[in-house]
């Protein structure tokens, strides 16, 4: 056996979320559940094409089915978009360190998602909302470039409607259908009140977003140890060998992709 051998899995369902993103329901042929933490990822293998690291978008569960939300950008992701329900792919993982969500029990949580960052964050959001009573206040801030790029639109509506969640969305560029906020994600901050010491801020988005959002959180006096981020790097193995994901001395596929800000702030190559 080698760590590089994938398990065979079946695509159960494919849903087009936007022009470039699709949501895949996947089940391991072994019938086992993935048993993942929110924030962890799998290596998805399209036979004959290659592998790509993809975050698990569904909440942790004992069910055999899990979900991946994939943007088509290159060889593997486009090949995956060409797959239909019933077709088979390979899965390795779950890999990496995700959110140990027991740690967050009883705390206020501020979720901040930029673009495709909602895909991994959704796993944690759903876990929290499923046992809503275990947590303090819950805020969700979500930013996309354009209204038609918003992911999981039905769920966004539910979150917006919930009384026990404070939900805000923004787009960089609006259109005639959009009545919400226009501007980058940091423009949502003046609208929300939170207790910086009681709140755990969890940010997932494109690399450029982190600096601005963390600055904003620092202005609001959120301590470093209350800030959590997930970092994307090139990954070729997922098991701490190939060297591609290294940030200074840290292997993102092993010690990340989820990091506490305090832990990586001192790494010059991190953000």
């Amino acid at each position: 056996m080698t760590v590089y051998k994938p398990e065979i899995a079946k695509i159960k369902k494919v849903e087009q979320l936007t022009k470039t993103e699709r949501l895949f329901d996947i089940e391991l042929l072994s019938g086992k559940s993935l048993d993942h933490q929110p924030g962890q990822f799998v290596e998805v293998y399209v036979f004959g094409v290659g592998e790509a690291p993809i975050s698990i978008s569904s909440e942790p569960s004992k069910q055999p089915t899990f979900q991946l939300c994939v943007r088509a950008v290159g060889n593997v992701t486009n090949a995956l978009h060409n797959k239909r329900a019933g077709e088979k792919i390979g899965i390795r993982g779950p890999y990496g360190k995700g959110f140990e969500y027991e740690y967050f029990i009883g705390k206020d949580i501020l979720f901040i998602a930029g673009g495709l960052g909602l895909a991994p964050l959704r796993s944690f959001i759903r876990a929290v909302l499923n046992s809503r009573g275990d947590y303090g206040k819950v805020y969700i801030l979500y930013g996309a470039r354009r209204p038609q790029e918003l992911l999981f639109r039905d769920e966004l509506k539910e979150w917006e409607a919930r009384k026990d969640v404070e939900y805000h969305a923004t787009v960089d560029v609006g259109d005639e259908t959009w009545q919400g906020n226009v501007g980058v994600i940091t423009t949502l901050f003046p609208d929300i009140r939170f207790d910086p010491r009681k709140t755990q801020a969890i940010i997932i988005g494109p690399p450029v977003m982190y600096r601005f959002v963390i600055n904003e959180l620092k202005n609001r006096r959120v301590p470093d140890e209350n800030i959590w981020i997930s970092l994307e790097r090139k990954m070729k193995c997922g098991v701490g060998k190939c060297g591609h994901c290294q940030i200074n001395n840290v292997y993102v596929c092993q010690e990340g992709p989820v990091f506490n800000y305090k832990q990586i702030k001192s790494l010059p190559e991190a953000i």
Binding site: Y4, Y45, G48, G50, E51, K236, C237, H244
Partner: peptide
Amino acid sequence: CFDVRDCVEINLKKGSR
């Protein structure tokens, strides 16, 4: 450090990583 790539036979039925 290493890269990992697929090699497919022409018949597309067999391959390796």
